[in-house]
């Protein structure tokens, strides 16, 4: 038994024991290499490519592509559309989250599913529905023309399509977080004599501020970058209904690649800034964001 002499005391044999609870180093390195190569080819290279092509004609060509009147008006329109649709969806998200997360009522699951609906609808269909409603041959088309109201092929259509596409972003960040936080804080505030609005402003809002910022960030990125839905309702009228992504398409189809990539680099920068801000929010305030899978 224990008095049997021990076998092999000197150098330890290779660790056979780790092999069943972990991958062997070879497998680990191979998997890491495959994953990083895939990410480099599919994610990083396109990004590098945008900036490389944008600067291919030199800095002067790059700057002039960004400062020519059509580009400037596209920038202005994109900012205008985001300035309307983001606050609108932020207010909606707050209202929806307050109703869904802090109260009980029937049909809550259906409502939550409906809020996510725009994510599972093709952007092109998002544009189409407004054309069917407000277009020349749409349901309200004749009436709108009689009263000289332009929606499709004009700024209101672009705003509507953008609002549709970006509608879920803020709500779906806030709802799970506010559900998790419960209602104890709010009840305490109310019992101390705060009004409902004061409670919301001073208790609820500070509790969800980072998640709100997170949602707004994603919402804004999509609002400024939306292509399909906006493309359908815009009519591509240069200097009037062209947003930045549409302007990229116009330039690209005119074989003006340097200008197309220059404008694209502007949008790519927006994406990078968004990603950085989002990552910092997750690192620093990860606990204050909703738990569970991040989309």
């Amino acid at each position: 038994m224990s008095d049997t002499p021990l076998t092999a005391k000197a150098p330890f044999p290779p660790a056979v024991i780790a092999a069943t609870t972990h991958e062997t180093p070879g497998v680990r390195h191979a998997l890491t290499a495959v994953a990083l190569t895939y990410l480099a080819l599919f994610l990083l290279l396109p990004l590098v490519m945008v900036f490389a092509e944008a600067l291919r004609g030199g800095l002067a060509a790059y700057l002039s592509a960004l400062t020519e009147p059509d580009a400037v008006s596209a920038i202005e329109l994109t900012l205008l559309v985001a300035a309307i649709s983001v606050p609108a969806n932020m207010l909606f998200g707050l209202a929806a989250a307050w109703a869904i997360a802090k109260h009980d009522f029937r049909g809550k699951t259906v409502l939550t599913t409906l809020i996510d609906l725009p994510f599972s609808v093709s952007p092109v269909i998002a544009g189409l529905i407004y054309v069917l409603l407000f277009g020349l041959h749409g349901f309200l088309g004749p009436w709108l023309r009689e009263h000289d109201v332009e929606i499709v092929f004009a700024v209101p259509g672009i705003v509507l399509a953008t609002v549709f596409v970006t509608l879920p972003f803020v709500a779906r960040e806030l709802i799970p977080l506010m559900q998790e936080q419960g209602t104890a804080d709010e009840e305490a505030a109310l019992s101390l004599g705060a009004s409902g609005f004061q409670t919301f402003l001073r208790v609820t809002l500070p509790n969800v501020r980072w998640a709100l910022l997170y949602g707004v960030l994603l919402c804004n990125a999509r609002a400024m970058g939306e292509f399909g839905a906006v493309s359908v309702v815009s009519g591509h009228i240069r200097g009037y209904t062209n947003t930045l992504p549409l302007h990229v398409e116009v330039l690209y189809n005119e074989y003006n690649f340097v200008a197309a990539f220059a404008v694209a680099s502007l949008l790519a920068s927006l994406a990078i800034v968004t990603l950085i801000a989002k990552s910092f929010l997750q690192w620093w305030y990860g606990d204050a964001l909703a738990s569970g899978p991040k989309r």
């Binding site: 224990s2 049997t4 021990l6 076998t7 092999a8 056979v16 024991i17 092999a19």
Partner: peptide
């Protein structure tokens, strides 16, 4: 159990150095 590997010394099962045994 063999879930961690010692940095020094020997574990022996009935006189057999357990390092020579896989978890199985």
């Amino acid at each position: 159990a063999g879930l961690e590997r010692q940095t020094g010394g020997i574990v022996a099962f009935d006189g057999v150095d357990a390092d020579r045994l896989t978890l199985r």
